[in-house]
Nucleic acid binder design. Structure first.
Lengths: 137, 137
DNA sequence: CACAGATAGATCGTACCACGATCTATCTGT
DNA sequence: ACAGATAGATCGTGGTACGATCTATCTGTG
């Protein structure tokens, strides 16, 4: 009803509401990360490592794809996270060009705490996001 | 099934998949904005103006709330967007402290094009996002 | 109607983060 | 064995949001 071909005022409102819901979630997420003593980027990196579902630990390139970042941006992100004691890197024995990334116990612990909060928050936002997406369907 | 109280590997994977879907959407959105000749921030600002549903045009504070930015960050964003010819500002006659923000025809035209693309993209991502959110429910 | 406090916005310097361009090291196919 | 591909590292740049602070305008209370 709200979306033939041209854009209706309702479409704009729905798009704006979607972005607002997204912003509120992202704001929550950034604040949660900073309260846990890590940057939002570090948090995303740790989640990508922990949620990696390939065979063996992810390489930096794998993470760049998951995070939708350029490779060299990910290189620096991993280095900063390693400096902060959240992840470790080790050369892949099978291919010395590759660096395998893993979480430290400290990173693991912070990620667990953040993930619990995020699971809660996503449950809260689920209904709203689905509603708004339906308006654009 | 996937979420009693402690976090399961499936929870981490679901959280990671959600962020990945989000990143892919945001990457699309940023690229679309830049292709249209505006920054992602300008695009969000224009959408917040066009999707505003209050009485009369939004003030800078209204937009700061919608964009989840600090007021002074929004002030600068609006100034840059005005410099780029995308929006105009005018003092509220009823309260000279307030600046009312509106789109220029140029901004209106760019936003229309971007919004069409975003409606399409969101339809594409809707199923996936809903799926992932359901995994955490 | 005057004044303290609240509200809206503007300005300045800072920090982070991602990027393009470029460089090195390692691997692979013929 | 060598050219090209792949993975990562380094350097300098730009955009964007922020904290701290300042000015201008409005409002409630005496």
């Amino acid at each position: 009803m709200s979306s033939p071909d041209p854009l209706s005022p309702g479409d704009y409102r729905a798009l704006a509401r979607f972005r607002y819901a997204l912003r509120v979630f992202l704001r929550f997420s950034e604040d949660a990360a900073r309260s846990a003593g890590v940057t939002p980027a570090h948090h995303q990196l740790m989640l990508a490592v922990k949620g990696w579902d390939g065979a063996g630990p992810p390489t930096i390139s794998d993470l760049a794809d998951r995070l939708q970042l350029k490779l060299h941006s990910t290189v620096e992100l991993v280095r900063r996270a390693a400096d902060a004691g959240l992840v470790t890197t080790a050369a892949d024995e099978a291919d010395a060009r590759r660096q395998l990334v893993a979480l430290t116990p400290h990173g693991e612990s912070i990620l667990a705490s953040l993930s619990l909060q995020h699971r809660e928050e996503l449950r809260r936002f689920r209904t709203e996001m689905v509603d708004v997406l339906d308006e654009l369907a």
